[in-house]
Amino acid sequence: MMEINEMKKMKYRDAIRLGMTEEMRRDDAVIFLGEDIGRYGGAFGLSAGMLDEFGEERVLDTPISEAAIVGTAVGAALTGLRPVCEMMHMDFVTLGMDALVNQGAKMHYMFGGQAQVPLVLRLPAGTGDGAGAQHSQSLEAWLCHVPGLKVVTPSTPAQAKGLIKAAIRDNNPVCFIEPKALYQTEGLVPLDDDYTIEIGKTLIERPGKDVTIVAYGTLLAKAMEAAAFLEEEGIEVEIINPVTLYPMDMQPIVESVIKTGRLIVAHEAPKTGGVGGEIAARIAESEAFDYLNAPILRLCGMDVPIPYSKELEASVVPQRNDFVHGVYRLLNRE
């Protein structure tokens, strides 16, 4: 028997595969469909070996037809399977939006609760590989505007495994956003095959008392680095990772702001209309408002398409030093 707490160091990418593989072994109703996920092993090598283990009936290479991939997944979920489908890049979800937004998200409600749509839509997202404007977006805010969808994003390998498993076990359509820049990052991952991360629960990644930073995806690590740097100067930053972007568990953020009186919200996605604005608004509406000692600061992507050149690309999304300066600004130390 494996020790229940046994951990193994692995890459974020491999942790997603491990979670998917465990769930496919556990439940025959789980199938996996997408473009080039079979023999090729996925555009990012994420599903390497899965075809050999599960066969063509459960690992299905599709035509380049995102509308059909998502629609088929919704129809299969509605009738008793638990499909996981992959958009090669999150940008391509725009081609499958009808099936996701008008169909899958609403069926449970508009059919009066009589049906479930247990599907996972895996969405490799974000900047970091110089892929340009149509392969680098973070479109989570669009999805967070649709009641009926759940939107989650893991920021570490352990979260990646626990969250993909929870997403597959969930009875709703779950959009699982995977920042591509994290694929090669490593961390300890529990090997327990019942290890899950609860959907709808915000995590406090680092306790602190001076400034609250809410960050997710690639920005969590950047915020953590900034916090380690600031600790040397005696500044204690509290870092919160919502994990589930929609519907978001706000209470830990509210409590944190009551404690620190200062809030930074951060994401790679463009500032305008982003998830950060929603968090800021909810804090402004909450009892935490009276505790604010400084304006809320949003550290977000610029309102531009993602440029191709690596230097330009890095310049449009927040970096570690932006967090450091943001904290200084809220503490009036600049």
Binding site: A67, V74, A76, N102
Partner: peptide
């Protein structure tokens, strides 16, 4: 599996329902 307010919405849903069968 439902009527549909989106013209053409049922085609891909039917593929999924058929895949289940």
């Amino acid at each position: 599996i439902g009527a549909n307010g989106i013209v053409g919405g049922g085609f891909t849903l039917s593929c999924g329902a058929a895949l289940t069968q």
